[in-house]
């Protein structure tokens, strides 16, 4: 009788452990999905921040202007 009770207790404990593991897996799945969504949102923000029109607009507000090509000098390091 005691052995039977012990066996039943073991089965119940196993089932409870499986249920808890399933719930944990589901929680981790949800967390992964949230992290992926956050990652996508950050990628989108980064791309928007890197866009040339935005950078140019900010630069102009700071008083910067595009450097004319004729103002660029090159040094030939091919000869001493």
């Amino acid at each position: 009788m005691a052995a039977f009770a012990l066996l039943l207790t073991g089965v119940v404990a196993l089932n409870v452990a499986v249920l808890r593991a399933n719930m944990a897996v589901h929680r981790l799945d949800e967390e992964r999905a949230q992290l992926e969504a956050r990652n996508q949102a950050l990628s989108s923000q980064l791309s928007a921040a890197r866009s040339a029109p935005r950078i140019e607009s900010l630069a102009r507000k700071l008083g910067l202007v595009p450097a004319p090509a004729s103002d660029t000098s090159y040094l030939d390091l091919g000869r001493p």
Partner: peptide, 13 residues
Amino acid sequence: YPEERRVYPQRTV
């Protein structure tokens, strides 16, 4: 429920 929305972060580019 969650759905994916398509976005174009660089807008006019």
